[in-house]
Design a binder for these strands. Structure first.
Lengths: 200, 200
DNA sequence: AACACTACTGACAAAAATGTCAATAAACAG
DNA sequence: CTGTTTATTGACATTTTTGTCAGTAGTGTT
């Protein structure tokens, strides 16, 4: 009846794999249960390793938090920079680009990351995001003929709204008896109409 | 040299005063330093009482959290219900009403409360808000001639955006090199333009 | 096969946070 | 002034969470 009699009693990973595994577990905990569930024991359990293993790779639970913030911010910056706006089709193209940006922030993970950073006062960590946003504003949106200044305003507005939608859209929608995606729909409609009003 | 020789060495309050004092301290902690600073010792220190005093009045620190949520939600509901829309002046009146609603949620305290509830999964507590929102949608906005359905959409959108602004507006604005109030300005502009587009 | 390296772990120690309790003192009634 | 009530508190106990350490077990090398 012995199954896998020669299976290793421990999984041994490279340090990079281990760190990645632990951070992935922590991220899903953050998204599913909030920051208060990022305790050492919870993270270790979710990652399927012993408490001591987490400390072996990160030194402290606070270091896990920091690494998680940085990892999620890096992901966010990547998706911001992936915004592409073809130079030919004018208005629809802008809409698509802004929608990509919106999507990047409206992701449950990103919205919760932002809330976490804000509530813990770690806003300073997001300076990386600033550079990404400015690059998109200047190089990509401006190339379509919108002044960088106005582009930055649009992005500021989009991101604020996107995070709001990502954090509260679903629960707020169902709270007042609407389908969960309603807030998202309305937000995108308003945002696109706003582009037309300002730049159209 | 003895100053106030017969001053009481302890302050003795009524139970209601004590609870109010503690909750006020907790609220300012929440707004200034986030939910993770709502520890027993921190709350007691901020309120100027001993740890045991907090427990005497609330039984547990979790009960303090619950009471704080309920108090802040009640305040929020009050300010929602204070939305008044005079029946005569049509469009500007709608704008003023929506702005009041926006302000109620954009308050730093309310936005942080919402984020706190969301991150801790206590969304269910906000059913009281639902009733307030629906009352405003039906009785007050609808009386100006906008269908309750559309009014609810507008409110959903306003609240989502307002919370986003309240939470991230300032730090996000300064992050990308704008004045801190910029996000708020832009949000209100867009919201009002949206009213005109849909109902004007 | 023997060895070195180190990721991994359980058992334990330390620290932090929460909660208990008996004693104290403010307010008030008689 | 005396007694009763109870909000308040310091000292202590308990629980929770984090961190340490010495030993174990995979993986690659000789």
């Amino acid at each position: 009846m012995s199954i896998n009699s020669n299976a290793p009693s421990r999984i041994r990973r490279t340090p990079e794999e281990s760190r990645a595994n632990i951070l992935a577990a922590a991220e899903s905990l953050l998204v599913a249960h909030g920051p208060q569930s990022l305790r050492l024991a919870d993270v270790a359990k979710a990652a399927g390793v012993a408490n001591a293993t987490v400390l072996h790779h990160f030194g402290s639970i606070a270091a896990v938090h920091q690494a998680l913030m940085e990892r999620m911010i890096a992901d966010l910056v990547d998706s911001i920079l992936s915004v592409e706006i073809p130079a030919d089709a004018p208005l629809e193209a802008r809409a698509v680009g802004l929608k990509t940006l919106f999507d990047a922030f409206e992701t449950r993970g990103a919205a919760r990351l932002a809330a976490w950073l804000e509530l813990t006062g770690e806003t300073g960590r997001m300076t990386v995001v600033r550079e990404a946003v400015q690059e998109v504003a200047q190089k990509k949106i401006a190339s379509v003929g919108i002044p960088a200044d106005m582009a930055e305003d649009m992005i500021l507005l989009s991101v604020t709204l996107a995070v709001g939608v990502g954090l509260f859209g679903r629960s707020l929608g169902t709270l007042i008896g609407k389908p969960p995606e309603r807030a998202r729909e309305l937000a995108l409609q308003m945002l696109l109409a706003n582009i037309q009003r300002l730049a159209g």
